[in-house]
């Protein structure tokens, strides 16, 4: 067979799978977002509404705005905290040696944990009677001793953020260690010879050279933070009330619990929009690296 035919035949199955499992549902979701789409009624999707689902979300649903707000704060906090802590840890671990390499290996473990299980484990750690972290915080800050974390809106949110940061630090740290390894040591040594302090070397030499890797990490983490569902579902299930209800959870709840597929598809599509920008930014980095 000629290469010219073969090369297209080789990619065909993959492209078909991606179309069937990702592109089709995207388009179909868009179509459903303009319909009534009630699961529990006959003749699904029961006619077209135009943009009514969207306007409903915008003007009639405080719960939608609540989940936008929760997701926004959650994303900003988890991205900032994970990146900063992972950068610190990466700086500590980058020099290598037996202890540091061993710790790098151990970092794989939390990363291989299912996010649902991370949710369970943090619910365990913050159990008011026998949770280890609950006991620890109670001992360090006595005012927190008698508080049931997951029953308190802001504290439950804080636990969700902690669980997320905990789960993502290993991955970001490993990426940043890789990034630090590609910073030429001569540039750092030259700055040190010039008498620059440790902080100045970091700020003026290391950080600028690490910028592309940091950008990739921040984009990627933002995408995953915006999508967060698994831990939240297992940890708080959006509660107490709707204090920790992220967009994904809101969509799940409206679609699956209330059977409002049309409405939840419209919210889902509102969520796709920021993803398009982030993916675009991400793709630029991937292709710059490839070329």
């Amino acid at each position: 067979m000629r290469d010219n035919t073969l090369k297209y035949l080789l990619v065909l199955p993959a492209v078909l799978v991606v179309f069937a499992t990702a592109i089709w549902p995207l388009v179909e979701s868009l179509r459903l977002s303009f319909t009534v789409g009630r699961l529990n009624k006959p003749n699904f999707p029961q006619g077209y509404l135009g943009f009514e689902n969207y306007t409903w979300a915008f003007w009639e649903e405080p719960a939608f705005w609540n989940s936008v707000w929760v997701t926004g704060i959650y994303t900003v906090l988890t991205v900032a905290l994970t990146t900063l802590l992972a950068l610190g840890l990466a700086m500590l671990l980058a020099p290598g040696g037996r202890l540091r390499s061993g710790v790098q290996t151990l970092l794989i473990l939390p990363f291989a944990m299912s996010p649902a299980l991370i949710g369970v484990s943090f619910r365990f750690m913050f159990n008011p009677e026998f949770g280890l972290f609950d006991a620890f915080f109670g001992a360090v800050f006595p005012p927190l001793a008698d508080i049931s974390w997951l029953a308190h809106p802001q504290l439950a949110f804080a636990v969700c953020v902690m669980a997320d940061v905990w789960g993502w630090i290993p991955f970001l740290t490993l990426v940043l260690i890789g990034g630090l390894a590609s910073v030429p040591p001569e540039t750092i040594e030259a700055a040190q010879v010039d008498g620059a302090s440790g902080w100045r070397v970091f700020r003026d030499v290391t950080l600028p050279q690490l910028a592309p890797v940091l950008a990739v990490v921040i984009i990627l983490k933002s995408i995953f933070s915006l999508k967060t569902f698994d831990q939240i579902f297992m940890l708080t299930n959006g509660g107490p009330g709707t204090a920790t209800q992220t967009l994904s959870h809101y969509i799940y709840f409206n679609g699956m619990k209330y059977g409002q597929i049309g409405y939840s598809a419209s919210v889902a599509w509102l969520m796709v929009i920021p993803m398009i920008f982030l993916t675009y930014a991400y793709a630029k980095f991937v292709f710059r690296k490839a070329s």
Partner: peptide, 17 residues
């Protein structure tokens, strides 16, 4: 690459139906 970033909730609604 982009399909990786599509939220799972978006994909699953039509598949569920």
């Amino acid at each position: 690459l982009a399909t990786q970033f599509v939220p799972a909730v978006v994909i699953i609604l039509p598949f569920f139906v």
